[in-house]
Design a protein around this nucleic acid. Structure first.
Lengths: 346, 346
DNA sequence: CTGTTAGCGCTTTCAC
DNA sequence: GTGAAAGCGCTAACAG
């Protein structure tokens, strides 16, 4: 029992057969090579007994594939990306892949380095939730031939395949909901300007307004970051206006946290004093000071589709089909939007 | 520019030098081997120009180290583990390591498989946030010689090194805080029984009670899971008692979400009708229906210490120093505990 | 200061 | 049915 079986040769020597045979059996090719049942079983038993697992590094070198996927997200502590990471890890493993997790810290330079790093580590595919508006480093990278799929955001005009949420519709429906509750002065606190997710949401917001004959007031569309602080600062500014909004659409869950902080500092209650809808439902969304109406994205679906796409691309020797998927979001109506049609409040 | 430089040999051939020299320069050993400035620069320039990065798989095979760390958590979508993963990824990368992320789905069998998987992938070290009470598969595993550190929970009597929070003190101080606010009937909704984190917290709870001369009522210590549902069900049961508690200590953030759900279904307000303190502060904790008083763990510190420990162990050829670290938690007092000393409410 | 050679552990021709 | 030998890309001994 104390024999040190460190590689396939040791095992082969022990059984008085060749490494080749052991390799074949262990890879389930006993049939293909017509290896006798006796030999096959002998190998399997020994591997089991000595708890031998082939060295996947050596295997990777030889096969020129590592059965590893890379995942780059801007912030794994953000519950949105954490949820996505969970389904991706699960799906990857189900398909025999391991996941190298990289956090780009919302920094484009880091993102670029990370792509290089993953290339050096010979991952078989990459799932990227990109940071910013620039995509030069990504398109340059795809020339290396490693399959890559963009999630969450997409980079228009680059031809990079992506899976994302139909953010336009998400915002449109959220705003329409608020309008139906009587709101006319609706603010929209933006995330990073110029990136697809944000642009689409803002456009959905504007179009919903226009459709109802409400003109767009650009002073009601501040902000330039998906973080909490941006929500806080801009809510304060909005509240200081002579004609403050009766409702706010927060373009991320973190922004909504900042909105709530500013509101509570001003002793303003949701939804009595002001209404709020935010993007991306979280487990705690229903338990906030006012259970929050949210635009929910299909995080599971995004993760599944991304992995499947990559697995298929890898199977086809890296030939990537171009796909553009936009999943319809879902408006979860809770209690953060006040109906002001009757009372005419504010 | 269209030369395909796919390995170190190609680059060497192009420059009419040996692969050895290229390797040495690229590994920063030009000095050690007294390689001429001219040659050194030539190599660096060419690598830059052709954007050549050595194949780390081949390197890993040769060096018998992959510069990869494995991280196993029970649920990466749980913000507690997501936060920890973030600092671990950051610290790992800072030390030149990449992170393979594994989610054990709170399942011990999966955890065991994952350990095997990581061993096969020849990670240089493993950070494990274990699932359950059993540790046989872990101690058996450490014999393989891969440095491993336990975080979050610890396994008493196994001699496995760990970094965790002083959960006893965390619970003790939380309960003491509630008692000072006049509470005497304080419930404690447990996570998984028998694991260190839970046991320590329950003991801290009991001892705080005893210290103040309050006897422990075992019917007030229900529960057996860290999830939301457990919090929900047991809160309902507690509320149905003829003598319900005036305060609840929830032993996880997810449990507290379940508590809040049950409370809101019964139209009970925090803290007016019932007080609540929970473990593990989250970004949203301050924005809940009542800003919640929380026992906060030093997630960053845990991540940093774990990586540093592993890096040191690896540096020392896998000789692991035995460490047991218990970080003092911090009670963040917000508004979810009512002072009932004066009114004598309930 | 630089190069030749061997070998990490695996799989895959090719041979019998 | 099975095995010997070559080689994936890299680096460490051993030369010189």
């Amino acid at each position: 029992m104390e024999n040190k079986i460190k590689n396939i040769k040791d095992l082969a020597a022990l059984l008085n057969i060749s490494a080749t045979t052991v390799s074949r059996v262990l890879n389930g090719k006993a049939g293909t090579y017509r290896i006798s049942r006796a030999t096959g079983q002998k190998v399997l038993d020994a591997a089991e007994k000595f708890n031998y697992h082939p060295n996947r590094i050596a295997r990777g070198l030889r096969l020129e594939k590592t059965e590893t996927l890379g995942l780059i997200v801007p912030d794994i502590a953000n519950p949105f990306f954490a949820s996505i990471a969970k389904t991706i890890e699960f799906e990857a493993r189900r398909n025999g892949y391991s996941l190298i997790l990289c956090d780009s810290l919302d920094n484009e330079g880091t993102e670029k380095e990370l792509l290089q790093l993953l290339a050096g580590r010979k991952v078989d595919g990459i799932i990227l939730a990109p940071v910013g508006k620039n995509s030069g480093h990504i398109t340059a990278f795809t020339e290396k031939g490693i399959p890559l799929i963009i999630i969450d955001r997409y980079l228009p005009g680059t031809g990079l395949p992506f899976i994302t949420t139909d953010n336009y519709t998400g915002a449109f429906e959220a705003v329409e909901h608020m309008i139906l509750q009587g709101h006319k002065r609706i603010a929209c606190i933006q995330g990073v300007r110029g990136i697809s997710v944000n642009t689409d949401r803002v456009n959905g917001y504007k179009d919903a307004l226009k459709k109802q004959g409400i003109s767009v007031d650009h002073s009601l569309i501040p902000g330039n970051d998906f973080g909490e602080e941006n929500g806080y600062i801009n809510t304060r500014k909005l509240l200081n206006k002579q004609d403050p909004p009766t409702a706010i659409l927060a373009l991320s869950n973190l922004i909504s946290l900042g909105v709530m902080r500013a509101l509570s500092e001003n002793n303003l209650k949701i939804p009595d004093d002001i209404s709020l809808v935010a993007f991306d439902d979280q487990p705690y969304s229903g338990f906030l000071s006012s259970p929050m109406t949210m635009v929910d994205q299909h995080k599971e679906e995004i993760g599944k589709l991304a992995v499947n796409y990559l697995v298929t691309s890898i199977y086809n020797q890296g030939k990537q089909e171009h796909i553009e998927v936009m999943l319809k979001p879902r408006l979860i109506i809770r209690k953060s939007v006040n109906n002001i049609t009757v009372t005419g409040r504010q």
